[in-house]
Design a protein around this nucleic acid. Structure first.
Length: 258
DNA sequence: ATGGCTTGAGTGTCAAGA
């Protein structure tokens, strides 16, 4: 079973890239962030034609998350339970017995800003809900755009980014809280090349110069971590015309898929 | 230099991203 996450920065613009990527990679599950679209115009038909069921939690202009899957999506749930939030950032579903939680975590704008306070509150609420979910679904995966680079080695220039947004210690502590719940960063289960990132700024030739951050992650509960055989960041779509600024991240699990 | 792209909104030019 192959499960992946990709911040597409507008599904309307990126649908051709998504369809091409699915055809090339045969993912069983793909979590999308920043669809930036409403449910009524979500491309269910195009995805169905490509062999994918879909569940979407969207809104106009900003945010928006979706889960695409070859198998049926069961127990679909939108948002964080008991957490008031206008922003559509979470959708979860069970696929082939695996609980998939797809999250677009807040950016935070700048350390100390109102949006930063919201980010930390939001991360706390998500962690509480994941803690609950793990009781019911031991086979859980939390995938998405975390907007957190967990360690200095996940940052192209750690000195420049020190204590900046996406890299600040409170954000990294929030990331570690998911690890403390028993989840494993699938990427770090394996030897990886240095300087491999999942996001690069559109400006200043960020991608060409590999000025990136690793902020998109696949976290796996123990039974899934034990079954994980690979985790890769695919830079291929970032080289296309009009790319998303993020690359997809995909983990391969040695469990049967439908 | 708080700049530099890209998107969505909407038809000016701004908010937001990371």
């Amino acid at each position: 079973m192959k499960i992946a996450t990709w911040n597409v920065n507008s599904l309307k613009v990126r649908l051709p890239h998504v369809l091409d990527w699915l055809a090339a990679n045969q993912a069983d599950v793909l979590c999308l962030q920043e669809t930036k679209t409403e449910d009524k115009v979500f491309p269910y038909a195009e995805l169905a034609a490509a062999g994918y069921h879909a569940a979407h939690n969207g809104q106009k202009t900003y945010n928006g998350v979706a889960i695409l899957a070859r198998a049926k999506l069961e127990d679909v749930r939108c948002d964080i339970p008991d957490f008031a939030d206008e922003q559509k950032r979470v959708i979860a579903a069970t696929v082939d017995g695996v609980r998939i939680v797809c999250a677009y975590m807040p950016n935070g704008q700048a350390v100390g800003a109102d949006k930063y306070v919201y980010k930390l509150r939001w991360l706390e609420a998500l962690a509480a809900s994941v803690r609950e979910d793990l009781q019911r679904w031991p086979q859980l995966a939390l995938l998405g755009d975390y907007n957190i680079a967990p360690e200095d080695r996940d940052v192209h220039d750690a000195a420049a980014w020190k204590d900046q947004i996406l890299c600040s210690e409170p954000e990294r502590a929030a990331f570690r809280r998911f690890i403390e719940l028993g989840l494993a960063d699938a990427f770090r289960l394996f030897a990886q090349p240095d300087k491999l990132y999942s996001w690069w700024d559109y400006r200043q030739m960020g991608f060409r110069l590999n000025r990136g951050l690793r902020i998109d992650h696949v976290l796996l509960a123990p039974p899934l971590a034990a079954a994980c055989r690979a985790c890769v960041i695919d830079k291929t779509p970032r080289k296309l015309e009009r790319p998303s600024d993020h690359a997809p991240v995909m983990a391969t699990l040695e469990i049967p898929s439908a």
